[in-house]
Design a protein around this nucleic acid. Structure first.
Ligand SMILES: [Mn+2]
Ligand SMILES: [Mn+2]
Length: 544
DNA sequence: ACTTTACGCG
DNA sequence: TTCACACGATCTA
DNA sequence: GATCGTGTGTCTCGCGTAAAGTCA
């Protein structure tokens, strides 16, 4: 049980912090009307401020007075009056039946229908359908349901904008404040300059919101052509936003592919700067039967010097097919790295246990314990050793108190911007100091949110075993590869690690159940590790 | 009377 | 808005 | 067997409550 907060208006305090943060850093990016809100909010009566924040933190834009019951606010209708006068909420909006139905319970819907024995037992959907036959298309809430009053929150777009400018994303919200205060989340303390802000221009904020809206509409099933038109001529000079645009375009391309709209898909991929879009361009040509063009495009990409590892892997897999289809000589690059293979026939464990657990149970013994850790072990060791580099107050990396990774983690310059800090961290692997550093940091930083440390998975025992059995040279190789492309290379590690503490050695085991195959990122890590002489194995399981 | 799900909450 | 697995379709050896 | 595409479950803080559906 969490301790209660002493201040019943804690959420209002948090909102004020956000507003002050915004007005201190972003006054030049706000319109006069938006500044007027920030200003005017502070002059509202206390209870009205609180009520507005309660609505902002809840879902939707419509709120029934009867459902806004807060002891610390008191009379809801009285608190709402100043908000109505300011025009930040409106009363008794016009609604369609489809809009009003979710606001009413089944019993309330029934109460507004003429009493008929035939309707009394119907499900809510059926009651609403019956209501549609006798009700107008749209009417005010008080006409739909006289017993209660409805308010409409008109500030959602502005509050989303402020939330975005504060967090730099729309995934986080005001609950971060209270969760941090309660200690549910603990965040690393990073010095944030008084002027630090993630957006440099209002246009960038507008564009982020625009792209987010495009993505939402796409996910809600809007026609691809419609979203495509919204993105096609969008000019962005901010690389971060252009990447976000590229990801939406890529998703659109995939959807067009599902519809076999090859030309549209190719158009989306051509507009996208996402590297995977270039590979899909080749695949679309192939699916169109344009094999010679596809082969040519594949070679063009492969010959380009900055073709990334993922694309190279995917293109190489396409080459034999394209070469066969075009009659070109088939060049097979069948360099199959020899990896130890373990074949097991095991009884299928009952849910929720998985094939990985079955293999753990089979291979585990007291002097050679096995852990099911996937990416979490190496990521945690990396995150602990490189903690000062990851949380270094680099300009632009941290701009609010609730980061669990630096904002520029995916940037190609990520490592270079922290070169000295990463060099120092990795140098500890040469000196042997890393063991003590990681142990100490595990204690010192325990529980603090980090994108690399899953605290619930890593305990002292596992950490000690890992530090005893994993050679520093191998840690160095893993970390170096991760740093080449952190977002790509932080996943794909094998499922299991087995340790022999008495011999100070280990092996990694990727488990494959029936029907499962090595995935691309697993193959890349496997090949890298084998190339460097690391002990790897793949365990294929069939059910007894 | 029971389960499932969505939401609000600190 | 991540990551990994499950599974079916299709084609090739 | 290899490859590709698609769907699913797991993450997201954990708890209490209301609402709706399911079943007898
Ligand atoms: Mn796995
Ligand atoms: Mn596996």
């Amino acid at each position: 049980m969490l301790p209660a907060l002493p201040n019943p208006f804690y959420y209002l305090d948090n909102f004020r912090v956000l507003l002050n943060w915004i007005s201190a850093r972003y006054a030049d990016l706000l319109l006069p009307a938006e500044l007027a809100f920030v200003d005017g909010f502070a002059r509202l009566p206390h209870a009205s401020q609180a009520l507005l924040v309660r609505m902002v933190m809840r879902k939707g834009e419509w709120f029934r007075a009867g459902k806004l019951n807060y002891a610390e606010i008191g009379d809801t209708r009285a608190a709402a009056q100043p908000l109505l006068a300011a025009g930040w909420i409106s009363a008794d909006p016009l609604l369609t039946l489809a809009e009003v139905a979710p606001l009413l319970t089944r019993a309330e819907v029934l109460s507004q229908l003429p009493p008929q024995a035939s309707t009394a037992r119907l499900a809510k959907d059926a009651l609403v359908a019956a209501w549609a036959d006798i009700a107008p298309e749209a009417q005010s809430f008080s006409q739909w349901y006289p017993p209660d009053t409805l308010y409409q929150l008109d500030l959602r777009p502005l509050c989303d904008r402020l939330r975005l400018m504060f967090f730099g994303n729309l995934r986080q919200d005001l609950s971060e404040f209270v969760l941090a205060e309660l200690g549910v989340y603990r965040y690393e303390k990073v010095d944030i300059p008084a002027e630090a802000r993630v957006f440099r221009s209002r246009a960038d904020v507008d564009h982020y919101l625009y792209l987010h809206d495009c993505r939402s509409r796409f996910e809600d099933g809007a026609p691809c052509e419609e979203i495509a038109a919204l993105l096609t001529n969008l000019q962005l000079d901010n690389p971060w936003l252009e990447e976000r645009r590229g990801r939406v375009l890529y998703a659109l391309g995939q959807q067009f592919e599902r519809q076999a709209a090859w030309d549209d898909a190719a158009r989306m991929y051509a507009l996208s700067i996402d590297p995977s879009a270039r590979v899909r361009t080749v695949r679309v040509l192939e699916r169109q039967g344009r094999h010679a063009e596809a082969l040519h495009a594949a070679h063009a990409l492969l010959n380009h010097h900055d073709c990334d590892e993922v694309s190279v892997q995917q293109l190489h897999r396409m080459l034999p097919r394209l070469q066969r289809a075009t009659g070109a000589p088939i060049i097979r690059k069948s360099r199959k790295a020899a990896v130890e293979r373990i074949d097991l026939c095991l009884p299928q464990p009952p849910a929720p246990l998985t094939v990985e657990h079955a293999v753990v149970a089979h291979l585990h013994c007291d002097d050679a314990p096995v852990m099911y850790v996937e990416n979490t072990l190496i990521n945690a060791l990396f995150g602990l050793l490189c903690w000062p580099a990851l949380f270094a107050p680099i300009a632009g990396a941290f701009f609010h108190p609730f980061h669990f990774t630096p904002a520029d983690l995916a940037s190609p310059h990520f490592r270079q911007r922290r070169q000295a800090l990463f060099d120092a961290a990795l140098a500890q692997l040469e000196s042997g100091q890393y063991v003590e550093t990681i142990r100490q940091r595990f204690i010192e930083k325990a529980g603090i949110q980090s994108g690399f440390v899953a605290w619930s998975v890593i305990d002292q025992t596992r950490l000690d075993l890992a530090l005893d059995c994993l050679p520093a040279a191998h840690l160095r190789l893993w970390f170096e590869r991760m740093l080449c492309d952190i977002t790509t290379n932080r996943s794909g590690f094998p499922d299991l690690v087995q340790f022999w503490p008495s011999e100070r050695r280990y092996r990694m085991i990727e488990v494959k159940g029936p029907g499962d195959r090595l995935q691309d990122n697993q193959t890349r890590w496997l090949n890298y590790c084998l190339d460097h002489g690391m002990p790897m194995a793949v365990c294929y399981v069939t059910w007894a």
